[in-house]
């Protein structure tokens, strides 16, 4: 059987935190997997799972705006490669963004059928951490870290809600795609990373 090989999109953002989280998830489930940073088109082939980290979605979109790179990522996601997008990664995966007057045109992968609004919980001064349940993982209190976080304004009919904070949808799943408004890589549990690995294992 093929080894689980999780790639972390290494263009910009908290790449190393995701590498550490995946390594820690592999240790917890005693799996001999591989985690690699992916920055160039030729590195996409060997991975069978992908994480798009937090960072600035405009920068990540612009810098990965190499036709080969974005189209091969998109193709692999369409073919069923499991992917996790956190914060900026969620925006990059989404297919629609509510444009504020200040937004420059922004590159999106468009794989996830949701509408997002950038920084909709406020600026850094309003960034917050808060606990909420994740029924799918059987967790009552998950500490979500929301840093200039996006809001999910609407979801398509094929999108499953994984978590809500009060009335806001903050984590979603659409088949092989998982997206969070918060940063699971900064929490003290790697439950989302373990879940991604599980999806990858099922897909092999």
């Amino acid at each position: 059987m093929k080894k689980v090989n999780i790639g972390i999109l290494g263009i910009q953002g908290d790449v190393e935190e995701h590498v550490a989280s995946v390594e820690s998830a592999f240790r917890e489930i005693t799996m001999d997997g591989v985690v690699s940073i992916v920055k160039y088109p030729e590195e996409i082939d060997s991975i069978n799972g992908l994480i798009i980290p937090g960072g600035e979605s405009t920068s990540i979109g612009k810098l990965s705006n190499n036709d080969d790179f974005q189209s091969s990522i998109k193709k692999k996601i369409t073919q069923g490669m499991p992917v996790l997008g956190t914060c900026a990664g969620l925006i990059f995966l989404s297919n629609h963004i509510i444009q504020n007057s200040s937004n420059t045109s922004q590159k999106l992968l468009g794989s996830l059928d949701i509408e997002t609004e950038r920084n909709a919980f406020g600026r850094q001064h309003e960034s917050f951490q808060s606990e909420f349940p994740i029924p799918k993982f059987g967790i009552d209190k998950f500490m979500g870290i929301f840093i200039r976080a996006p809001r999910i304004r609407s979801i398509g009919s094929n999108v499953e809600i994984l978590a809500k904070l009060n009335d806001d949808i903050v984590a979603v799943k659409q088949g092989n795609i998982i997206g969070t408004c918060f940063h699971p890589e900064l929490s003290n549990t790697v439950i989302f990373h373990k879940y991604l690995i599980e999806l990858v294992r099922e897909s092999l």
Partner: peptide, 8 residues
């Protein structure tokens, strides 16, 4: 965490 998001 905010600073970590600026990396690279």
């Amino acid at each position: 965490g905010f600073a970590h998001m600026l990396k690279h």
